[in-house]
């Protein structure tokens, strides 16, 4: 039983990591559109990255609610 819990927890770690890669990739494409001339995100880019993630997750929650409502 303990081993199953441990496997579950490893699986969900893998899912979280994989989601982080996909979100970073998507938000990078949305937010870093200028030529790269610095090794840091500037304020606009860095706000955009955070807002992109948060609003994507908000949208995801909204879509889940809409599909649940549609299934009733």
């Amino acid at each position: 039983k303990e081993i199953m819990q441990w496997i579950d927890s490893e699986n969900s770690k893998a899912k979280v990591q994989s989601s982080i890669h996909n979100f970073t990739d998507m938000c990078w494409k949305k937010c870093v559109t200028k030529d790269i001339t610095s090794n840091m995100l500037d304020t606009t880019e860095s706000n955009c990255m955070t807002n992109c993630l948060q609003r994507f997750l908000d949208t995801n929650i909204n879509v889940v609610k809409l599909i649940q409502a549609a299934q009733k």
């Binding site: 807002n51 948060q54 994507f56 879509v63 599909i67």
Partner: peptide, 17 residues
């Protein structure tokens, strides 16, 4: 739907939807 509608509807993500 989340991916496509996020791209269609949230072009400049701000501090709220």
């Amino acid at each position: 739907i989340t991916e496509n509608c996020f791209q269609n509807c949230v072009k400049n993500p701000g501090s709220t939807i």
